[in-house]
Amino acid sequence: MGIAAQHIYKRFGDFVALDDVNLDVRSGELTALLGPSGGGKSTLLRIIGGLEDADSGSVIIDGVEATGVPAQRRNVGFVFQHYAAFKHLSVYRNVSFGLEIRKRSKAEIRNRVHELLELVHLDQFADRLPSQLSGGQRQRMALARALAVEPKVLLLDEPFGALDAKVRKELRDWLRRLHDEVHVTTVFVTHDQEEALEVSDSLVVINHGRIEQVGSPNELYDHPVNDFVMGFLGPVTELNGQLVRPHDIEVLSTDLTGSVQAKVHRLVRIGFEVRAELDAGDSQPWVQLTRGQADALELETGSVVWLRPSRDASTLVPQAGPPGAAAVNRTTVGP
């Protein structure tokens, strides 16, 4: 059950958007497709939703072959980054749209719409036009609209991408709670790793039209299979020829087994966090410490310390990845 996309291949002109992608989404889960823009994740979502046709490969939704079935008959809820609100229709009519298409009775529509508007906290705005709503409200309306038809799966394409940071955070929490209530199989696309890590049950990292890794947020954060995934999910620094997360580096005042001598080059305090940039001969790692740790070590510019990865740290030997991946690494790694 859930969604299975098999051997999906899609190109736009010379550009290969998806290259033999296989994806399994478990029923009832909230799955995030994460990756840089242009990586193919939105295309994959649109192929699942039937808004785009794959060049080859098949899509199975809820155990039913959906390849070639037009979007309007897939019974899939779709939420767009820019809301796609029906501008000429009231909030009520937006939400009732799918039910009207399905020729449900007036009474049934009324009950269902009010139920949904309550769920998304828009009951008092039923008669407004979308233009009279804030961005967050519009997206909640879009969600209610998509849920109204009781879709087999809910697909969200960068649903919070057009919202400001605060609303984004709120809606993210709200989506998680909503999903816990309605339990519809949900796939959402995002390029924000924090959002993906926080909200999803399962995470799929996509880059250059290929799936890099699939797993739970913790698995991927702690055990990335390559430097792209590692770099995309969180900060990375290089120590002694290995990639390691900056909070996974032990700073020692004495030389212990496996440690490397380094000299503090610069100290930056960001709230409770202290970032130490060091010079370790071959490499220039940076380390993330709490203020307490930094104080205990009496760190200051010019101090000499010893560094080693902490015991359960995940480390990777960097590989010569594709140039795009390397670029992403540089931008996400450290200051």
């Binding site: 808004l51 979007a71 309007q72 019974n75 749209f97 998509a146």
Partner: peptide
């Protein structure tokens, strides 16, 4: 966007044309 949203909600091309 709006036409695609209508499509995902089950509207045929004629319904999309008339309603959206």
């Amino acid at each position: 966007d709006q036409e695609q949203a209508a499509r995902s909600l089950g509207a045929s091309s004629w319904q999309r044309f008339v309603r959206i």
